[in-house]
């Protein structure tokens, strides 16, 4: 068995980094290192000389890693790394999941695959969580807006809660708009009156 593959994970969020590490540990025995500080990214990678670097696609520091693709660049790095080219389908899946992998020159595709598979699965989960969180937040905010609009109608018209809600819903239907949008319009323009 050749030497243990060394992996560097670039991730500022500690929890996320730990989750990625856990997923990789399940996939095999690797030497894993996490970089959380963007300013020291180039130095750390240079120092560690990992076989694979995993980075979130949305991380703006990613462009720093591109310097490593210059095999004999002005900085004369001893190691040339490439965006993973071992399997177009796998690379595309990684991009879709939001992770990109840099792989050291000469690494066998068969050794890269399980690592990338594990990373992709984990990043897909992050993506789902992010979407769910955003949806929940939005629902909560809309709920609050509707409650405030309802309160305003109750006060202005001297009606009960159910009737206020019915009025709001009727207005939304008449204007062909979402309930939350009508509520928002009411709440934001009411601010002008007080």
């Amino acid at each position: 068995m050749p030497n243990t593959i060394s992996i560097t994970i670039v991730e500022a969020d500690r929890d996320r980094a730990m989750q990625i590490v856990d997923s990789l540990r399940e996939a095999g025995d690797f030497d894993i290192h996490v970089v959380s500080e963007p300013s020291s990214l180039a130095r750390q990678v240079e120092h560690r000389q990992p076989d694979i670097v995993l980075i979130d696609l949305t991380n703006p520091s990613r462009d720093v890693l591109e310097e490593m693709t210059l095999a004999s660049g002005p900085l004369d790095r001893p190691v040339a790394m490439f965006v993973d080219r071992s399997d177009a389908g796998l690379s595309a899946a990684a991009i879709e999941a939001g992770v990109s992998a840099y792989v050291v020159d000469g690494m066998k595709p068969a050794r890269v695959k399980p690592i990338l598979d594990a990373a992709i699965a984990r990043f897909r989960m992050f993506q789902r969580m992010r979407t769910e969180l955003a949806e929940t937040k939005k629902a909560l905010e809309e709920r609050k807006l509707i409650d405030r609009a309802k309160g305003m109608i109750m006060k202005a018209r001297g009606v009960g809660e159910d009737e206020a809600y019915a009025l709001l819903r009727k207005a939304a239907m008449n204007q062909n708009k979402r309930l939350a949008d009508v509520a928002e319009a009411l709440v934001s323009s009411a601010g002008l009156l007080s």
Binding site: L57, T58, N59, P60, R62, D63, L65, E66, V83, S100
Partner: peptide, 8 residues
């Protein structure tokens, strides 16, 4: 978010 990600 970055040139490398846009290229990919």
């Amino acid at each position: 978010p970055s040139w490398s990600s846009l290229r990919d």
